[in-house]
């Protein structure tokens, strides 16, 4: 058993539980702060401190973090951020528009706190700086595994929401730069022209 402190109350729990399992163990009926239970949905962001470490704030997903003796924790199931769904129509104005809809992109002070809190271990600061430079493809690659938990936005001293900037850039990039698949287009054309109609008739005749 280990001793953990959940929002100021201390409990004894078995040492092989995740934080979420520990919440259930002590009697919490979770509604917010719980989701896919597999590390994909970003609903169970949690912050905690450990004894004898002083100021250091740790973060993790409650479904993906083992309890640690002496930890003191709170969940952050929601973090308010400014959202936009306006996208550029042409490659010419995409960078300009990013800075218009997310002006905070330019405010990064390169402190790297976001990298330290990302539960996916992404190079968050890196992709924000790349976005700021207009290197969208790099931002796409570096941010692809983001689960939008919002912990980076919570910690950023410049009030940036890196997770939203990344989503914006990925979508902007995909909307303007992705080449449509030829295989797909060919298959759709074949279906439209009736290439499989005879085979379908035969097959359904067999099924009765």
């Amino acid at each position: 058993m280990v001793s953990i402190d959940i929002m100021g109350k201390t409990y004894e729990v078995p040492d092989d539980l995740t934080i979420l399992q520990a919440l259930w163990y002590v009697g919490h009926k979770t509604i917010r702060g719980v989701g896919c239970l597999g590390g994909f949905c970003g609903a169970c962001s949690t912050v905690y401190r450990l004894p004898d470490e002083g100021y250091k704030l740790h973060v993790g997903l409650a479904c993906q973090t083992n309890v640690i003796d002496g930890m003191s924790l709170a969940q952050i199931p929601f973090f308010p951020s400014k959202d936009t769904t306006i996208y550029a129509e042409t490659v010419k104005n995409e960078e300009e528009l990013l800075l218009e809809v997310y002006p905070d992109t330019q405010k990064c002070i390169s402190c790297g706190v976001c990298n330290r809190v990302c539960p996916q271990n992404l190079n968050v600061m890196g992709y924000v700086l790349k976005a700021n430079n207009g290197e969208f493809q790099t931002t796409v690659n570096w941010s692809f595994d983001c689960i939008n938990c919002g912990l980076c936005a919570m910690k950023c001293p410049a009030d940036i929401s890196p997770n939203l900037i990344a989503r914006y850039v990925r979508r902007q990039y995909a909307l303007l730069s992705l080449q449509p698949s030829r295989l797909l287009a060919t298959r759709i054309e074949e279906i439209r022209k009736g290439k499989y109609d005879d085979a379908w008739r035969e097959l359904f005749a067999d099924l009765g």
Partner: peptide, 20 residues
């Protein structure tokens, strides 16, 4: 049959809305 025949069009749509 509806699933397999309409599948390719659904994927085109996903790509169109930005799925990478």
């Amino acid at each position: 049959r509806f699933l397999v025949e309409k599948g390719p069009e659904a994927i085109v749509w996903l790509e169109k809305i930005g799925v990478i």
